[in-house]
Amino acid sequence: MMAAAPARPAGIAVTVGCAVVVTVLGACQPSVSRPPAPLPPAPAVVEVTMREFRFDHQRDVPAGRVVFQLRNDGRLEHELTLLPLAEDVPPISEQVSGSQRRQLAPFAGVYPRQPGTTDTFAVDLVAGRRYALLCYLRDSDGTSHARKGMASEFRAGGTAARG
C-alpha cells in the first residue's frame, strides 16, 4: 500500500496565496457598496384536489398572495368558487344545507373542469378573513356538489378549517 504524501506545506502555501489574492481583490472593490437587497418572496401555493364530494387541501392557508393549484381527481366534472365569508355567516356546511342562506359574492374561481384536468389562479387573501371553497355543480340527482360535501372553509393565516 502506498503511503499518503505529506501535503501540509503545499496546503499552507496555497492558503496563504489565496488569502493574499482575496485581500488584494477586496481592496480593489469600490469603497462604498450596498449589500444586494433580498429577492422577493415566492407566493404560497395551496394544492386543492377536487373529488366526489370534497375538496382536499391543507388546513393552514396563509394570507397574502396565494396561488391555488387545482386538480380534478374525481370521476365527475367539478368547479371551484372561492368566496369571502363575513363573520356572522354560519359555517359553510350549514350555509349550503340550511333553509336560510345568505347571498355570497364570489371572489375567485374556475369553470367546471373535466376529470384529470388542472387549473390555477392567484388571489390576495386578507389575514384573518374567512373564505369558503364551493362547487356549485349539481349531481345527477339534482343535489349540488356543495351540499354533498364540496364545501370547505378556512381562515386566511389561521388554522380553523371546517366544512
Binding site: 398572495r65 359574492a105 371572489f107 375567485a108 374561481g109 388542472t118 390555477t120 392567484a122 388571489v123 390576495d124
Partner: peptide, 12 residues
C-alpha cells in the same frame, strides 16, 4: 412549462 398566474384574481 405550465402557465402560472401573475396577477391576482378579484371577480368583484
Amino acid at each position: 412549462w405550465p402557465e402560472v398566474p401573475v396577477t391576482a384574481m378579484d371577480l368583484g
